[in-house]
Design a protein around this nucleic acid. Structure first.
Lengths: 208, 208
DNA sequence: CCCGTAAACTGAACTGAACTCAGTTGTGGG
DNA sequence: CCCACAACTGAGTTCAGTTCAGTTTACGGG
C-alpha cells in the first residue's frame, strides 16, 4: 500500500495554525464537533471567520487534522512502549500504560478522536479532507495491526492463550479507548486508577 | 430522581413514523448522521420534507429517538438475561450473550447509538429533543448501574475478584459495545464469534 | 350521505452556519 | 525602500434544516 505521509505545512512566525487547532480542540472536546460554531473558534483565536480558510479548507478538514495528529501520537507511543521488549507480557503492560500516558492537554483530543471515528468511514469530496481521512484511516489500521501482532507473538510464544488475535486486539483497543468517553481530568477516578485496572484487565484477557 | 418516561405517541393507521425511523436508521447507519440529508429520508419514505416535521420536531429529535429506543431495548435485554439468576458468573455470561442477541435490523441502530453518544452530553434547546436526550441519558446510567450492581454482587459473594466495580463495568461495556463500530453482518467475523470471545474476555476480567 | 374535525401533507419562504470571492494589509528579505 | 507572499477582511453566496400558511384526506357522528 502506498503510504500517503502528510507532513505538517511550514508555519511562518505569524501563523495562527497552532492557535486554531488549540481553540478547535477545546471547543470540539467540550461541546462536540457539530455543536461548535466555526465562527466561535475564529473569535477565540482573534481573527475573522474567513481567515480560518487560510489554514484549513473547512471545519471538517480541521477536525480530521486533529484526529490524525492524535492517531500519530498514539501509534508513536505504542511503538516506543513496546519496541525492543522481548517479553510479550511486559510489552503488553507497557502498551496499556502508554495509552494512558497523556498530558491533560491531550485528553479532549482523545475524546474528539473517540467521538468522531465515524467520519473516517465515508469518503470526502474535498482533496485535502480526503487526504487527511485516508491518513487517519491508515493510522487506525496500523495501530490495530500493531496490537494484533503483539498478541499474535505472545500466542505463538505460548505466553498468551490462543485465540483470534485480531478480534481480541479490537476488543482490547475498544476497551482502552472507551475510557475517553467518560474520563474527566478532575473527576473522582484518576488516570492512574484507570491505567492500573485496564492493564490488569488486558493481562487477564490474554493469560494462558 | 424524577423519571421522565417517554411513551411512544399514538400512531394512526396512516402514520409514517415507523417508515421514517426505518429510513433514518438505514441512512444514519450507512453514511452517518451528519452526512445524511434529511430531505433524502423524506424522499425514501415518499413524502415531502416538511411532512417529516409532522412526526419529529427536527432531524436531531429523530436521532435521539432512535438512540433512546435502542437503549430501552438494550436495558430490557440485560434485565431479561440476568433476572432471577442467582449465580453471578452465569448472570454475567448471559448478560454478554444478550448484548449480541440482536436481529440484523438492530445492527445499524447499535452503530448509530455508538457513533453519536456524544450528543447526549450537551443540553438541547428544544423541549422534545431535551426530553429524549434526558431519557436516553438516564437509560445509559441505568444500564451502567445494572452492570455495576451485577459485578458488585459477584465481588461481595466472592465469585469475582475484588476491584472498583463501577470502573470495571464501564470498561466491560466499552469493550462490548465497541464491536458495533466495525462489525458488519456479512463480514468474515460472525456475531457468534464475537459473542463467544467477548464472553470469555469478560469472565476472565472478573475471575477471582 | 354529508359534515366537522383532526391527522397527514404540501409549496414557498426563511434562517443561519459554512463557505467563496475579490480584494487589502503588513512584515521580513533583498 | 519595495516587493512578495503570508495573513487577513467585509460583503456576498449556498444550501440543509426549518417555519409558515395553508390544503387534502380519512373517518366517525348526526
Amino acid at each position: 500500500m502506498k503510504t500517503a505521509k502528510i507532513t505538517e505545512p511550514d508555519e511562518g512566525p505569524r501563523s495562527k495554525r497552532k492557535a486554531i487547532l488549540a481553540a478547535a480542540i477545546k471547543n470540539f472536546g467540550k461541546n462536540g464537533y457539530d455543536a461548535t460554531k466555526w465562527s466561535v473558534v475564529a473569535d477565540q483565536v482573534g481573527i475573522g471567520q474567513t481567515a480560518l480558510y487560510h489554514y484549513f479548507e473547512s471545519k471538517a478538514h480541521c477536525l480530521l487534522t486533529i484526529m490524525r495528529l492524535e492517531l500519530q501520537r498514539s501509534l508513536e507511543m505504542f511503538v516506543k512502549a513496546t519496541d525492543g521488549r522481548p517479553d510479550p507480557m511486559e510489552a503488553l503492560r507497557e502498551a496499556v500504560r502508554s495509552a494512558y500516558t497523556v498530558s491533560e492537554r491531550d485528553v479532549p483530543q482523545m475524546r474528539i478522536l473517540q467521538n468522531n471515528l465515524a467520519i473516517l468511514a465515508v469518503p470526502r469530496s474535498s482533496k485535502k479532507e480526503e487526504a487527511e481521512r485516508l491518513a487517519a484511516r491508515e493510522l487506525v489500521h496500523r495501530i490495530e495491526d500493531a496490537w494484533t501482532e503483539l498478541l499474535q507473538r505472545g500466542m505463538d510464544e505460548g505466553a498468551f492463550a490462543h485465540r483470534d488475535a485480531h478480534t481480541l486486539a479490537l476488543n482490547m483497543l475498544g476497551m482502552i479507548v472507551s475510557v475517553w468517553r467518560w474520563y474527566r481530568p478532575r473527576g473522582s477516578v484518576t488516570l492512574a486508577n484507570v491505567s492500573e485496572l485496564t492493564e490488569d484487565c488486558c493481562v487477564r484477557m490474554v493469560a494462558p
